[in-house]
Amino acid sequence: MTNATDQVSIRRKMGRLAPVLPALIVSVAAAIAFILFPYDLAFLTRIVIMMIFVLSFDLILGYAGIATLGHAAMYGCGAYAAGLVSLHLASDPLIGLLAGAVAGALIAWISGCVLLRAQGVALLMISIAVTMVLQETASQARWLTGGADGLAGITVSPLLGMFEFDFVGQVAFVYSVCILIAVLIFCCILASSPFGLALRGIEGSASRMRAIGTPVYRRKVTVYVIAGAIAGIAGALAAQVTGLVGIEVFNFSLSADVMVMLIVGGAGRLYGALVGTLVFMVVHHIAAGIDPFNWLFVIGFMLLIIVFALPKGLISLPDRLVALLRRKP
């Protein structure tokens, strides 16, 4: 009897720990990577930033089931906002992040009000069109954005007034990992909240959710704005770490890559975003390093193998292995 209640309380404690657990795993993994690859910190930082970006996409595609091909819109706005703020207003990195988040949320709200009324292919196309409009605007508004040359020479003051951004990129890496952990915890809490459950319901069947009284459209706009803010943070981080923002931040291929990474990892489970980004970017990096001309073969075959062998993404690999082992007597 006491044993059983103990177990329940342990499980309850585990349940309370659940949002912290992924953060723990990420920090341990990041620490190991930091020690093992001290000369690849710039690349690792890029992966971490991409993870934040893909996580934000998981909120809208994986949880709410909204497929877009224009997620770069929010990333790019965040990047430009952070760049402009640090060039003209304040060089504190956290203020830059805030500006990125606000810019991402704002553009998500404006575009979301239009595109979330559409569905399927129309939604995909409107999201692409929005990103294209932003890219053209950024390339035309030369007085503000530097046009095709982009914003260069973005410098940020020491983090929290203490940690100077160094040449090797140690501070940048730790800074990005901290932001990733914060975003991850936030997403875990969001996913298990009533709001997160409503999103899953909308993904399953929007009409039934409407029937039980959920304001589907409003929920979608809300999650789109939240995801936009996080994507804006990712863009702001990229701007601060590299010191550059160009009109490539609005590239269609960036939106497509994000979708590919998420599906490779497995949509709708936050870990999937992390695993997919890591695997995709590492395979990409190694293949391009070995053969700069034919690496696309590797990526192409990888995508086909994954989609045929693991339709639910890499994250389902352990489940599939267990199922295979169980089937054998």
């Binding site: 497929a67 590919v260 990526i299």
Partner: peptide, 15 residues
């Protein structure tokens, strides 16, 4: 599903 189609056909494009 839609997402699998996107992934598979992008893989074919890359090839």
């Amino acid at each position: 599903g839609e997402l699998g189609q996107v992934l598979a056909t992008i893989g074919i494009v890359f090839l």
